[in-house]
């Protein structure tokens, strides 16, 4: 390749690339802005959804904690229930009687009569 060919080549290369250097796309800027706005809305939606979910979970936990009865309250409620329950009181008495019968000596009635009526007593 001589110098003129070289020069022509360089000029053509530069011209060919320069003609393609800038491509104006009609409406491109508006499309970019539209995509960015959609992404921004989506991000906001996700952020709000996340915030609402977190807040709702916190509310549920708070409600659960405030409604849970304390230990003292549970004891009072149990006592009140027991006090109002007659069958429980009856069971308590029977349970005491059972305990006494266990402690009492086992003596058959016929044997006691025999002892009392025997001539030597």
């Amino acid at each position: 390749m001589d110098n003129s060919d070289q020069s022509t080549f360089e000029q053509d290369l530069s011209a060919a690339l320069s003609r393609k250097a800038a491509v104006v796309v009609p409406g491109f800027a508006d499309r970019v802005v539209a995509v960015v706005q959609v992404k921004r809305r989506r991000a906001n939606l996700i952020r709000w959804s996340s915030w609402i979910t977190t807040a709702a979970a916190a509310c549920l936990v708070t409600v659960f904690l405030t409604k849970e009865p304390s230990e003292e309250s549970l004891i009072k409620q149990t006592r009140a229930l027991l006090a109002s329950d007659e069958s429980a009181q009856f069971n308590e008495i029977l349970g005491l009687a059972d305990d006494l019968s266990v402690l009492a000596p086992v003596i058959e009635k016929s044997t006691l009569v025999d002892v009392l009526t025997s001539p030597g007593s």
Partner: peptide, 11 residues
């Protein structure tokens, strides 16, 4: 943003 894209997108 629109203006920036308009300025730079052709190249």
């Amino acid at each position: 943003l629109r203006l920036l894209v308009h300025r730079h997108h052709p190249r």
